[in-house]
Structure formats: structure tokens, C-alpha cells
Simulated scan of single mutants.
Amino acid sequence: MTPLDKPLRREVLIGDESYTLTVDPEGLKLVRKGHRKGLDLRWEALVNGDAALATALQASLETP
């Protein structure tokens, strides 16, 4: 297998919006194209089963 030692970025089209998905050694980040803030998911949260809780908490902290 190839180790994940640097960020891997891909463009994803969700509905009519373009997003950038970054996969790196710390986790995943999904950001709407042209923006800086997005959804962060750490590998530890995913493995521990805290992913849903972490995502909900992050969404509740974002300003509309």
C-alpha cells in the first residue's frame, strides 16, 4: 500500500456546487470551492465512532 504522507485534493460536484475534498494524514476536509471554512473530520473521530457527534457539533458552531 501507498502511505498517505501529503495532502490529496480532489474536486467534487454536489448538486450544483463545487467542493474541494482534501484527504491528509490528519483526516478529511470538505470545503465549498472559493471558501476557507468547511467540514473537518479527523481520523480519530471516525475510528472512535465520534464522527456523527463531531460533525453535528461543528455544524452547530457555524454561523449562518
Rank of each mutant, 00 (worst) to 15 (best):
M1Y: 15
M1R: 13
M1I: 15
T2H: 14
P3C: 04
L4S: 01
L4P: 02
L4I: 04
L4V: 05
L4H: 03
D5K: 06
K6M: 13
K6R: 15
P7M: 10
P7K: 05
L8C: 08
L8A: 07
L8M: 13
R9I: 07
R9Q: 15
R10M: 14
R10S: 12
R10Q: 14
L13K: 14
L13V: 15
L13M: 12
L13P: 03
I14K: 14
I14L: 15
G15F: 03
G15P: 01
D16I: 08
D16A: 12
E17H: 08
E17D: 15
S18A: 10
Y19G: 01
T20G: 00
T20N: 09
L21Q: 06
L21F: 04
V23S: 04
V23K: 07
V23C: 05
P25F: 01
P25H: 04
P25A: 04
E26Y: 07
G27V: 02
G27M: 04
L28F: 09
L28K: 00
K29C: 05
K29P: 00
K29Q: 10
L30F: 00
R32W: 02
R32A: 05
R32N: 01
K33A: 11
K33W: 01
K33H: 11
K33S: 09
G34I: 06
G34Y: 06
G34M: 09
G34V: 04
H35M: 14
R36N: 10
R36H: 04
R36C: 01
R36K: 13
K37S: 13
K37N: 15
K37G: 12
G38S: 05
D40T: 10
D40R: 09
L41C: 02
L41A: 01
R42W: 02
W43F: 10
W43N: 00
A45P: 01
A45M: 09
L46E: 00
L46S: 01
L46M: 06
L46D: 00
V47A: 07
N48H: 07
N48K: 12
N48M: 14
G49P: 00
G49M: 02
G49H: 03
G49Q: 04
D50M: 07
A51M: 03
A52N: 07
A52P: 02
A52Y: 05
A54I: 03
A54L: 05
A54Q: 08
A54F: 05
A54E: 08
T55W: 11
T55L: 15
T55Q: 12
T55C: 11
T55I: 15
A56T: 05
A59C: 06
A59H: 07
S60T: 12
L61E: 14
L61A: 13
L61G: 07
E62Y: 11
E62Q: 12
T63H: 15
P64C: 09
